[in-house]
Amino acid sequence: METILRRLQLASGVVLLIYLFLHLVNHALGIWSIDLAGHGLVLALRLWHSVPGTVLLYGGTLLHFSLALRTIYGRRHWTLSRTEWIRLWAGLSLPLLLIRHAVATRLASSLYGFEPNYERIVILLITSGTQGLQLALLAPGWLHGCLGLWLRLRHYPRVRRAKPALLAFLVGMPLLSAAGFVRMKHAVVAMRATLPAADPILVAHQAALETWRHNLVTLYLSLIISAFVAGQLRNWLERRRLRKASFNL
C-alpha cells in the first residue's frame, strides 16, 4: 500500500508540475509578444478545460493534497533537512495559487461566462494590485515540484551528472516567466492611454468570487492545521501509553 501511495503521489505531482510548467511557458512567451502568449493560453485552456484535462488537474490536485494531509498527520517527528523544509514550504503555497487562479478564471468562467485572455488577466492583476503575488506564488510551486522529482531521481547517475543543467532550468523558468509577464504588463499599459477597469463581469461578481476564494483558503488552512494538530495529539497519546507501559514493567 505504501508503494502504491508513493506512486500516486509522484503521478499527481507530475501532473501539477506539468500544469505549472505550461503556465510558466505561457508567461515566458510574453517576452516576444502578448499575442504569442495569448495563443499559448488558448491551447492551455483547451487542454485543462477539456474533460480529461479537468479530471487530471483537479483530480491530481485533490489526490496530492490528500496524500500531503496524510503525510502531515503521520509524521512522528519534524526533524527535517533544509531541502525538505524548503520543499514543504513551497508545496504548501501551491494550493493558494491554484485557489486564486481557479476562482478568478475557471469558476468565473463556469458561473458567470468570463472568457480569460492575457490582456484581461494583466489588467485584472494590475488593478487589483496582485501581480506581484501571482509571480511570487508560481515560483514556490515550481520549486516544490522540481525538488520532489530530484529527491525521487537523485540516486540515478545520469540525473546527478545533469544537476547543473537541472538547476539552471529550475531557476531559469520562473525568471523567464517573470520577464514575460513584466513585458506583457508594459505592452498592455502602452496600448492604452488610460488603463481600463477590470472586466465588467469580474467587477459585477467580485464580492461573490472573493467569498469563494476566502472560503476555499480558509478550508485549506483549516485542513492543514487539523492534520498537524491531530498528528501531534496522536504522537502525545502514543508517548503517554509507552511511558505507562514502561512504568508498569
Rank of each mutant, 00 (worst) to 15 (best):
Y112T: 11
F181D: 13
H144R: 05
G74V: 04
T79N: 05
L166A: 08
H77T: 15
L133K: 01
V171C: 07
L80T: 07
P174N: 03
I86D: 02
S177I: 01
H77W: 08
R100G: 10
L94C: 13
P157D: 14
Q131K: 04
H101E: 12
V103W: 01
L153W: 09
G91T: 00
R106M: 13
I72Y: 01
L143N: 07
G74I: 04
K163N: 14
A165T: 14
P164E: 05
L153E: 10
R70T: 12
A136V: 15
W89N: 09
V171A: 08
T105F: 04
G91F: 02
L88T: 12
A102R: 03
S177T: 10
R76S: 04
R100I: 15
V182M: 02
A108E: 01
I72V: 09
L124Q: 10
A168D: 04
S128I: 06
P164F: 02
A168M: 08
M173Q: 09
L153A: 13
M184T: 01
A90P: 00
I126D: 05
A90G: 04
R152H: 15
L124H: 06
S109F: 09
W85N: 08
P164C: 08
T71Q: 11
P95Y: 06
V103D: 02
R100V: 15
P95K: 02
R70V: 10
A179I: 04
I126T: 08
L176N: 09
Q134K: 07
H186C: 02
L135V: 13
L135G: 09
L167D: 11
P164K: 04
L151N: 12
H77Y: 05
E84L: 13
H144N: 10
N117G: 03
L138W: 01
V182Q: 01
S81H: 02
P116H: 01
T79Y: 03
L153V: 11
R87K: 09
T71S: 14
Q131R: 05
A108S: 06
W142V: 15
P174I: 02
R160T: 15
R120W: 02
L97T: 07
K163R: 15
R100M: 14
V182K: 01
G74Q: 07
L143D: 06
G180M: 00
